[in-house]
């Protein structure tokens, strides 16, 4: 009974938050509502008993991704309203409703037709993190490592693209030019 109450409460809050995100004209309201929505989504994970994923949702989405958005928001004036161009609202409304129906259908169909089974039954007696660890390091090891390398590549690419004076490569220049630049850097 409590689960149902919690579910409906958090569902209502989540939908409200994301509705605000999509429809508001104040950029700061959208940012805050998105962050709040991410936290409420983690509540669903907790209700389902996936504590680890719930906490990871908080840490990754709210703590990191939204902070990134907030950093981006510092570069423009947050106190002004954003005016969007809406050429035909009916088209947007129609397409989004259609997309939502499709997504729900795709996910509900296997559940309703009772066609899915779990490949890896839940191991008894160990906590949530251990279960994820077991699966991650045995069956899904290669995708895990590949994902880690992808993150590393993204980090390096981010630094190269955004860093100042990153278009100069010290190793591809003549020895003397590189020396002078190193000397300048040391003095400044």
């Amino acid at each position: 009974m409590f689960e149902a109450v919690a579910f409906y409460l958090f569902a209502f809050l989540t939908i409200t938050m994301f509705y605000i995100t999509v429809t508001t004209q104040q950029a700061l309201y959208a940012l805050t509502a998105l962050a709040a929505g991410m936290i409420f989504i983690s509540a669903f994970f907790f209700i389902l008993g996936a504590d680890f994923l719930g906490v990871v949702q908080i840490i990754v989405y709210t703590g990191a991704v939204m902070a990134l958005y907030a950093f981006g928001m510092m570069f423009f004036d947050t106190t002004r309203d954003v005016v969007e161009k809406r050429t035909s609202p009916q088209m947007i409304f129609g397409m989004s409703t259609l997309a939502a129906i499709l997504v729900v259908a795709i996910f509900v169909a296997p559940i309703v037709s009772d066609n899915i089974t779990a490949f890896y039954p839940v191991v008894e007696g160990v906590g949530n993190s251990q279960q994820i660890g077991l699966v991650l390091f045995t069956k899904y090891l290669v995708p895990f490592e590949v994902a880690a390398i992808m993150l590393l590549v993204a980090m390096v690419a981010g630094i190269v693209l955004a860093g100042k004076k990153m278009d100069r490569s010290l190793t591809l220049m003549d020895c003397d030019d590189a020396e002078t630049i190193l000397q300048e850097n040391k003095e400044s």
Binding site: F52, I59, G63
Partner: peptide, 28 residues
Amino acid sequence: DINVGVLYVLGVMAIGLYGPLLGGLASA
């Protein structure tokens, strides 16, 4: 007493970032 105690504490303290963040952004 959840299984992910430490992670939860750290995660929630990470959300604490939003107080100064939003407060500063909202102040003109």
